[in-house]
Design a protein around this nucleic acid. Sequence first.
DNA 1: TTGAAAGCGCTAACAC
DNA 2: GTGTTAGCGCTTTCAA
Lengths: 343, 343
Amino acid sequence: MSRIPGRVPTTPPTLADVAELAGVSRQTVSNAVNNPDLLRADTLERVQQAIDELGYSPNRAARNLRTRASHLIGLRINAAQEGTANALMDRFVHSLVETSREAGYHVLLFAADHQDPLSGYDDLLRSTAVDAFVITDTYLGNPQAAWLETRRAPFVAFGRPWGVEEPRHPWVDVDGAAGSELATTHLLDRGHHRIAWIGWRRDSWIGEDRRAGWSRALRARGLPTTGLASRVEDTVASGREASAVLLDEAQPSAFVCASDTLAMGVLHTLAERGLVPGRDVAVVGFDDSQVAQVVPPGLTSVRQPLEDVAVEVVKALEGLLGHPPYVGPGVLLAPTLAIRGSS
Amino acid sequence: MSRIPGRVPTTPPTLADVAELAGVSRQTVSNAVNNPDLLRADTLERVQQAIDELGYSPNRAARNLRTRASHLIGLRINAAQEGTANALMDRFVHSLVETSREAGYHVLLFAADHQDPLSGYDDLLRSTAVDAFVITDTYLGNPQAAWLETRRAPFVAFGRPWGVEEPRHPWVDVDGAAGSELATTHLLDRGHHRIAWIGWRRDSWIGEDRRAGWSRALRARGLPTTGLASRVEDTVASGREASAVLLDEAQPSAFVCASDTLAMGVLHTLAERGLVPGRDVAVVGFDDSQVAQVVPPGLTSVRQPLEDVAVEVVKALEGLLGHPPYVGPGVLLAPTLAIRGSS
DNA sequence: TTGAAAGCGCTAACAC
DNA sequence: GTGTTAGCGCTTTCAA
């Protein structure tokens, strides 16, 4: 098969086209692409020239079929939560896409089906559309992780497998307790003594973890925590109500929150009472969302190192898909604190 | 090739496995999957049963190779802009993923390379990794659109091809002028007469479009616009400075902004001056970001119907990839106004 | 309505 | 080092 020069080809050039132009066999072209060191320098040069001239790029489908690999990583995205400050996923997706590319992978997005949390995973797996998954919500009893394990599907979790002693899959997480400890200590250093906590309900392991950092920091200075904590839903309204109650009953001078969403609730209460965040009452959030960055006077917030998370996730992925597959220990990363006007 | 019962297969079942189990030929199984009406009811039933029993799903790579289609749509995501309220992309990606699935497509994400705006596109195209692209930033002279057209690559643009008289590619956009007109009229109805505009620099077509809606609404009521408009960078700081200057020099009672980011800048100025948004000065933003939704007392904002945009984009995509390909006229959708405490 | 043959473009295994 | 052969799993002819 040869091309008519000067005409836009209807179908991209193939290995055979390159081979013909370079005057070598197809296999040699394949080697030039995949194992260049197997070729003699002059042959490689000639083949490379033909590749450039034709604008050849290996057909993915053919390569995938042959190698039984798609070089695609599946990532399920959940419906964006309106009315919250939660944009964590967005930043993570960016980082993951960027990092994956360097490892030769692309990210395939698929949607969550509310009826069946496993749908999507099953399809992609059985049709060998993706090589592995990245899962992001690892609450206790998360069915995906367990199911993927029984299917022997390669996957890496962003989030610890809470309550599982010996996970058999790689995971990467951010130390939430360290994050709120950082936030609380920051407030202590600013001279605050009565620091309240607004977090999530007790059944959230992540929430309890973050809460532990707050109480640890206070206890380290011999300060009491009683009456200073509240456990609510992760909504702005809940944060507003909880902070109003705490202000009335416990007179805290500062709030540490399990999320920026809750922290925004606190800002609502302050605005209603004519209190100025950072001057009258200090507030710290969690996740360093865009909201934290732009709201006046700036919301101090715990920032997860999502770029590093992505790097570790891709590392784990490469191990998992290597020959032989390798499962390393879980990776726990330390968050930082983005300090702004609210504290 | 047959499976050992009770053992997890190392490789997924193939067409041949199903054929053997159902006692038919491979083609019949293929027909059962792709052209069920070609089969007799009882044969179809038998094949279907075998498919279910084996958990068969057609191998994507093989199908892609044969049909010269990947059923993948490429979407390039740009680095998330920190410090802005811009989360438009996030919502759009969700909608697109969801809508694409219904049309049998998955979304493949790839990263932007800052050096070369075309990198990524070229690779994916030549390796036939995606069937089409969705491009999202259609500023004037956007090289991607022009380049993709010369490559005859199928793509749909979210955004009008500004300045191009007869675009040959499908596009879907939201009427920005209608959006700011909606916002301005809303403020007029609330009794405001001096309504300022803070928008982007003149070289932004989108910005000029949105600005036109503001001036149109004012002129419709015979109100002046002179001295009430400002054109700045899309940052919180610029919005803050511009609003401070406008307040001093033109005494507006309300602001309409080209973005939520700029509107947040206005809120900064108000906070600094002890003014209460919605009571002392009204503010309206653009894009209905999470920030608008959670900032006290709620930022009124123009909301783009991204779900509808995604539906139209996928429709256009299906036309483009149909036989024969069909390119419909551009689609312009009307935004709505999310009214909150700031107005 | 069902089956047989061919081939999409590539790479693994082996021969030379 | 380079070429030959075979086959990944599927669908598209075409024949029965």
